[in-house]
Simulated assay, not measured.
Amino acid sequence: MALEILPGPALASRTTLRLGGPALAEVVLETPEDAEALAGTLEKLGGAPLVLGGGSNLLARDGELPLVLVRPRLAAEPVILRQRHGQQVRVRVGAGVKLQRLVAWLATQGLAGLAGLIGVPGTVGGAVAGNAGSYGDATGDRLARVRLWTPEGGLVWVGRDDLDIGYRRFAPRGVTGLFLVLEAEFDCAVREPIAIRQDMIAHLKKKRASQPITAATAGCVFKNPPGEAAWRMLAEAGFAGKRLGNMAFSELHANFLVNLGGGTSDAALDLIGTAQGAVRELCGHELELEVKVVP
């Protein structure tokens, strides 16, 4: 089975923060079964594999990167499975489908549970792998099972009981290395479509007023400490609008790092480190990264 391989893709063109130098190659999967040839392909290409969805939670370094990008472009549209659990309906969708496509489709079907994710970029696979959440909804709260690939186990469906899911955390139990999310199934509650759409409109209006959702960002830089809001601590430390070169923390939401155009990863990392130190000194909290720095 021959996989599509693209030479030298730039991470700056693959990530929403628009940072990152060229990787060694990019391997594209069109179907779950393509993953069966992945182990051999990665071995031939060398470099460390980096699974890439929509690139919305990554801060990639500049310069040549010893990485091989793995992109599951699995675009199987969402479908309702004939499995009903009380007032819940199970939906299956491919990992390469845009998260916003799924959120909008669920609303038209009168299926609730992920409406809070309106406006969150990226793919379904990336959202599952990061347990994306917003306005009280998270992928992990509705996730029933996932179809995974690992080099050791190959293709397998894994149920919720065998997944470690928490705040911005997702991992199949017993797997410590590479894994790919290929398909996901969600259990969604039945609700009137108009009520779901009204919630989505309200959420999106609030996001547009409080987050730089049209800017080049990677989403939230830091996780929220228990009982605290990272953006509030950053603002109190004077980092709302704080700029270094062409990288800056947003004035709208101090936990969003923005590439103003021509920014560099060095500037981004320096700004992040300075912010962590300032918050530690002011509030006594050690801010933990939510964005993933690669490599």
Rank of each mutant, 00 (worst) to 15 (best):
A2N: 11
L3M: 08
I5T: 11
A10C: 15
S13I: 10
R14D: 13
L17S: 09
L17R: 08
L17D: 01
R18F: 10
L24K: 14
L24C: 03
L24E: 00
L29M: 07
T31R: 15
P32H: 10
E33N: 05
E36L: 12
G53I: 12
D62T: 06
G63I: 07
P66L: 10
L67E: 06
R71I: 14
P72I: 06
R73F: 12
P78F: 04
P78H: 05
V79T: 08
V79I: 08
V79H: 05
L81T: 04
R82H: 11
R82A: 14
R82T: 04
Q83H: 12
V91F: 05
R92K: 02
G94M: 11
V97F: 14
R101T: 15
L102Q: 04
V103G: 05
T108A: 09
G116K: 12
L117M: 00
G119R: 09
G119P: 07
G119L: 08
P121M: 07
P121Q: 06
V124D: 00
V124P: 03
G126W: 12
A127S: 13
V128M: 08
G133Y: 09
Y135K: 07
G136P: 00
G136V: 00
D137T: 02
A138H: 13
T139W: 13
R142V: 09
L143C: 05
L143G: 04
W149Y: 15
T150Y: 13
E152I: 11
G154M: 06
I165V: 15
G166L: 07
Y167F: 15
R168S: 03
G174S: 06
G177M: 11
F179P: 02
D187E: 03
L204C: 03
K205P: 04
A209E: 12
S210P: 01
Q211I: 13
P212E: 02
T214E: 15
G219K: 13
C220R: 09
C220V: 11
K223S: 04
K223A: 03
P226R: 07
P226D: 00
A229M: 11
W231V: 01
M233W: 09
L234P: 02
E236H: 04
E236G: 04
A237L: 02
R243E: 01
M247F: 08
F249V: 01
F249M: 03
L252P: 03
N255K: 06
L260E: 00
G262Y: 05
G263L: 03
G263M: 00
S265C: 03
D266I: 06
A267V: 02
L271G: 04
L271M: 05
A275I: 02
Q276M: 09
V279Y: 07
V279Q: 04
G284R: 08
V291Q: 14
V291K: 14
P295H: 08
